[in-house]
Design a protein around this nucleic acid. Structure first.
Length: 486
RNA sequence: GAGCCGUUAGCUCAGCUGGUAGAGCAACUGCCUUUUAAGCAGUGGGUCACAGGUUCGAAUCCUGUACGGCUCACCA
């Protein structure tokens, strides 16, 4: 027999229709939510509830059922939570009761009207006077006690995960909250939320492999954006001074517990600010988000507690390397590259790459509490402003939490002549096999020629931040529909 | 892309060194008017991911494929 439960439910559907009941009826409007009823009435005594003669109406999915023959309990689940419902043979009309017993399955949607009371065990419950079939479900729901465990099913059929696992709902509610808080934070500081193209003629603003697509009418290849950076800075040139964009980025690279081909980032730019200012601003922002979600500066994540209390540590890459390996690591290229080779680091003869990669290999995973890492080499930072006292270094930092890069920020390079030269250097290195290096972007250089005020900007990875704030070990837990092979 | 692990009923899982498949929930038939993992009695349900191979005999051993998980590499 092929899927007996499915066939049986289809028979029930036909039976409903035969009785003149629309199994997909419209028109029932619930006047209350489960949460409203629970928060207002759960604390009342049975006697107090007795005196309330109001009739309440609710709609939701039946998620459990306990049948006693002449009466039954079930739980109704809506977006806000769930509440118990009690139906008795003599509290509704005969037809409704028969329908309920014979044709209502766990998973079906119903609307109910009735008054509140408390059971012997003290649970707030709705006594049904009227019951409406709203939607017949043809497939059985995952099991009530263990929920849905199979990760593949959880990702591919996220709706089942959301029905069965309360934690999944909470993760995505928190994600939504985080995004909301970030918007509020920037709006309050007079940043303008903007939207820039997702289809780029040149994939710029980051070191990453893009997705390629094609526009038929224009007969041109386009790239899905890997970063909005160069467009946002054009807006600063245009005088908007403070802008942010929160949205999806696309990178054609491997998938892992920390990488999804599309991910969400907020990038923002502030004229007349420096990267130092942005350390403070990001500290403010992340603290604001942590405070309004987790509500504690100590955040439990996997086997550790992350301490978000301020101020956050700020460490210099060059100083750290000097302390660890002595001055030769900075001053002697031979020493540097042989060190890199011994650590099996792929540097391609690029000093800055070797230095940053050694640093990362050395300390990244020790940076559990939020830590700003600054003093990046010039040749891995083609869009960042040179440091005033050390021309090999740029005014750039990254924020690490739990060994992961959460944010990347710098004072922006606004010298068009230097920018053009940097692009040319990038193109050189791209020829040497550095696939992710930048292409020449003449259009962006000409924009800079019109003058960009001194500006600092940053990008923050939202998915990774949400992972930390929901104790999720995989990025797939915080993205509704993560990419899987089909 | 590489290594390791996994895939058994609608769901959650057992199934030992090979002897032809089990439980709980869900479903079905009854009983039961305050239960909450309700209870009691009974019933049905499987291409053991897929394809080969070894064997008298394969869910079990071997090989390949698909999909997934973890780790690594690239990256945010």
């Amino acid at each position: 027999m092929e899927d007996k439960q499915f066939e049986l439910r289809k028979l029930k559907l036909k039976e409903l229709e035969a009785m003149g009941i629309d199994p997909y009826a419209n028109g029932f409007t619930p006047e209350h939510t489960t949460k409203e009823l629970v928060s207002i009435h759960a604390s009342k005594s049975p006697e107090e509830l007795e005196e309330i003669e109001d009739v309440f109406s609710l709609a939701g999915r039946v998620v459990s059922k306990r049948d006693f023959g002449k009466s039954a309990f079930f739980h109704l689940s809506d977006r806000t939570g769930k509440i118990q419902v009690f139906i008795q043979k003599n509290s509704v009309d005969e037809k409704t009761f028969a329908l309920f017993r014979k044709l209502l399955d766990i998973g079906d949607f119903t609307g109910v009207r009735g008054e509140l009371f408390k059971t012997r065990t003290g649970e707030l419950t709705v006594r049904v006077r009227e019951l409406f079939f709203l939607t017949k479900t043809l497939r059985p729901l995952p099991e009530k006690w263990h929920g849905l465990q199979d990760v593949e099913t959880r990702y591919r059929q996220r709706y089942l995960d959301l029905i069965a696992n309360q934690r999944t709902r909470e993760i995505f509610q928190r994600r939504s909250k985080v995004i909301n808080l970030i918007r509020r934070f920037f709006d309050e500081r007079d940043f303008l939320e903007v939207e820039t193209p997702m289809l780029h003629p040149i994939a710029g603003g980051a070191a990453a492999k893009p997705f390629v697509t094609h526009h038929n009418a224009l007969d041109m290849d386009l790239y899905m954006r890997i970063a909005p950076e160069l467009y946002l800075k054009r807006l600063v040139i245009g005088g908007l001074e403070r802008v942010y964009e929160l949205g999806r980025m696309f990178r054609n690279e491997g998938v892992s517990t920390k990488h999804n081909p599309e991910f969400t980032m907020v990038e923002f730019y502030q004229a007349y600010a420096t990267y130092d200012d942005l350390m403070d601003l990001i500290e403010d922002l992340v603290s604001y988000v942590v405070n309004n979600t987790v509500g504690n500066t100590l955040v439990e994540y996997e086997d550790k507690k992350i301490d978000f209390s301020r101020p956050w540590k700020r460490v210099n890459i060059y100083e750290t390397l000097r302390e660890e390996f002595g001055p030769s690591i900075i001053e002697d290229d031979k020493f540097l590259f042989s060190k890199a080779d011994s650590m099996r680091i792929n540097h391609n003869g690029i000093r800055g790459k070797a230095l940053t990669e050694i640093f990362e290999a050395l300390v990244e995973e020790t940076l559990v509490n939020p830590t700003f890492v600054y003093g990046f080499p010039l040749d891995v930072s083609p869009l960042a402003r040179k440091n005033d006292s050390d021309p090999e270094v740029v005014d750039r930092f990254e924020l690490y939490i739990y060994g992961r890069e959460i944010a990347n920020a710098f004072s922006e390079l606004n010298d068009p002549i230097d920018q053009k030269k940097r692009f040319m250097d990038q193109v050189e290195m791209k020829k040497k096999g550095e696939e992710e290096y930048h292409e020449m972007d003449n259009d962006y250089v000409s924009a800079l020629e019109y003058g960009m005020p001194p500006t600092a900007g940053a990008g923050i990875g939202i998915d990774r931040l949400v992972m930390l704030l929901t104790n999720s070990s995989s990025i797939r837990e915080v993205i509704f529909f993560p990419h899987l092979r089909s």
